[in-house]
C-alpha cells in the first residue's frame, strides 16, 4: 500500500494553506484569549451558569438501548450518555478577511469534533451538539485564532451583517448591537447573549486582530486579497470535480484513469 497521509485540501496559495491548516486536526489552534466557562454559558444563553443540564431523555444507562451492533460499538459522547438536550452556538463571519469562511467552519468542525451537527447558510453557521459537548467545542471556537472579536459574531438570531461594510472601529454590523467596541480598553465587549437578551455584566472577548494579521490568517479568497482565480491548482481541482461528476452522470464506465 502506498504511504497515505491525509491531505485535507488542495491549492497552492496562502489561503489554501490556511484552509488546510485549520482543517488538519493535528494542528493545534492557537489560543488567543480566555473566556471563562460561565461567561461562555452566558453568551450562549441556554442555561444559567451552575444550573444542571436539562435532559431530553433519561441517561442511556438508565433507559437501556435496543440490541444494535452499532450502538454496542460506537461510544456515545458524554452529553449523549447523560441525555442532554441538543443546543447550538451560531456564528456570523464577515466577508472582510475573517479567519473562517462559513464552509470552513463545517469542514474544520467535522474534522476536529465528534458528534456535531453543522449547517452552513449564506450568513450564519450553526453548530449543534449535546449541551455539554457543545460547551467544550464552543470554547475552542471562541478562544482560539479562528475567532476575531470584531469580524466574527456569536449570533443566534438576526444574524445579518456578514456582507456589510465594517464600521469606523472595524466592527461587523449587528442589528441587535450585541457587541460594542470599548474605546478605552480597545476590546470588544458583548452586552447581550447570542440571541440578544441583555447580559447582567458585559463580557469581554478581547482585542480585535490587526488587519495585516487577518489578511495573513484568513481562509477567504477575495479579489482585494488573494483572488480565487490566482489559485490555479484550486481552479483545476474544481474543474476536475465538475467534469468527473458530469461525465460519471453520463456513463460511469467511461471515466477511467483521469
Amino acid at each position: 500500500m502506498a504511504t497515505y497521509k491525509p491531505q485535507y485540501y488542495p491549492g497552492s496559495t496562502k489561503i489554501a494553506k490556511n484552509r488546510k491548516k485549520y482543517m488538519d486536526p493535528s494542528y493545534k489552534l492557537k489560543k488567543l484569549r480566555t473566556i471563562s466557562d460561565d461567561d461562555l454559558v452566558k453568551l450562549m444563553g441556554h442555561r444559567v451558569p451552575g444550573e444542571a443540564y436539562k435532559s431530553v431523555h433519561p441517561p442511556l444507562e438508565e433507559m437501556g438501548e435496543p440490541a444494535c451492533p452499532i450502538r454496542e460499538l460506537v461510544e456515545p459522547t458524554p452529553g449523549a450518555k447523560a441525555g442532554d438536550r441538543i443546543r447550538y452556538i451560531q456564528f456570523t463571519d464577515s466577508v472582510y478577511f475573517t479567519p473562517l469562511t462559513p464552509y470552513m467552519r463545517a469542514w474544520m468542525g467535522h474534522n476536529r469534533y465528534r458528534g456535531v451537527d453543522i449547517g452552513v447558510l449564506s450568513g450564519r453557521v450553526p453548530l449543534e451538539a449535546r449541551e455539554r459537548d457543545l460547551e467544550k467545542v464552543a470554547k475552542d471556537l471562541v478562544e482560539t485564532e479562528i475567532f476575531d472579536p470584531a469580524r466574527c459574531g456569536i449570533r443566534g438570531a438576526t444574524v445579518h451583517g456578514h456582507a456589510l461594510r465594517l464600521d469606523e472601529n472595524g466592527m461587523m454590523f449587528d442589528a441587535l448591537r450585541r457587541f460594542v467596541f470599548d474605546k478605552k480598553t480597545g476590546e470588544v465587549v458583548y452586552v447581550k447573549d447570542q440571541i440578544g437578551v441583555p447580559l447582567d455584566k458585559p463580557i469581554s472577548v478581547g482585542k480585535p486582530l490587526k488587519e495585516e494579521e487577518l489578511r495573513e490568517m484568513t481562509s477567504e479568497y477575495r479579489v482585494d486579497g488573494v483572488p480565487f482565480r490566482e489559485d490555479k491548482e484550486m481552479i483545476e481541482f474544481i474543474q476536475r470535480l465538475h467534469m468527473l461528476r458530469t461525465e460519471a452522470g453520463f456513463d460511469p464506465n467511461k471515466v477511467k484513469g483521469i
Binding site: V74, P76, T77, A80, I86, R114, G115, D117, G119, R130
Partner: peptide
C-alpha cells in the same frame, strides 16, 4: 453511524 451514533441523535445526518 459514527456521527449520529456518537450523539445518539438523528438530526446530524444531513450534515
Amino acid at each position: 453511524m459514527i456521527t449520529c451514533g456518537s450523539a445518539r441523535s438523528m438530526q446530524h445526518c444531513p450534515s
